[in-house]
Simulated scan of single mutants.
Amino acid sequence: MTYQKDYTTTYTINGREYEITAPALFYSDTSDTDEIISDVELDDQAAEIARQKYRDDMGLIGPDELKAYRKKTGLTQQELADLVGISHNVITLYKAGAFPTQENNRRLKAVMGNF
């Protein structure tokens, strides 16, 4: 029988450890042993929680902030990239969840102001 319950684990991101609790999928057999099993969707959710903790810890702009800023301003990815002075492909990577470099993060924050 499979079931879902919260599971606490530790992720290491760029040498920093983040303990997170998120839903995970388990299998239980008749011997009363519970075994965690891989579930791509739940595993991705847990990893994103850890990545967001890292972004918060390091003061990095995240995908949701970029999307909200672009929606508020009406800028395309190319227009934002031009304002920041980086390539459109880099904005695409950040929108997909990649971590900005310190310099690009500083530039993004400067362009985005107090957003």
Rank of each mutant, 00 (worst) to 15 (best):
I61F: 02
M1P: 14
S28H: 02
T8L: 07
L60D: 04
K5W: 01
G85Q: 12
I20S: 04
N14I: 03
T33F: 07
I20H: 00
Q77M: 13
T21H: 06
A96N: 13
Q52W: 06
T2Y: 14
Y27R: 11
Y94R: 11
I49V: 13
R107P: 01
R107Q: 15
N89G: 10
A46W: 01
L93S: 14
L80T: 05
I91E: 12
K95N: 14
Y27G: 00
G85V: 05
D32F: 09
F115C: 05
I13P: 03
H88P: 04
F26V: 00
V90Q: 13
L25V: 02
V111K: 11
V40Q: 13
V111D: 08
K109C: 09
T101C: 07
T21V: 08
L83T: 02
N104P: 05
D34G: 05
Q77V: 00
D6K: 06
A50W: 04
K72Q: 13
Q45M: 13
L93G: 10
M1T: 09
A22M: 08
E19N: 03
Y94V: 11
I36V: 11
P23I: 03
T92V: 15
K53M: 14
A50L: 00
L60K: 00
I49M: 14
N105L: 08
R70P: 02
M112L: 10
L42Q: 09
T21D: 05
T12G: 04
I36N: 03
D39L: 03
E41R: 15
S31H: 09
A24D: 00
R70F: 09
D34K: 09
D32P: 06
K67H: 12
T21W: 02
Y54P: 04
K53D: 04
R16L: 05
A110G: 09
D44C: 07
A68C: 02
I61W: 05
S28N: 03
L83K: 12
T30G: 15
D6W: 05
T10E: 01
I86A: 13
P23C: 06
E41Y: 11
G62F: 08
K5M: 07
Q4S: 07
A47S: 14
Q102P: 02
S28Y: 05
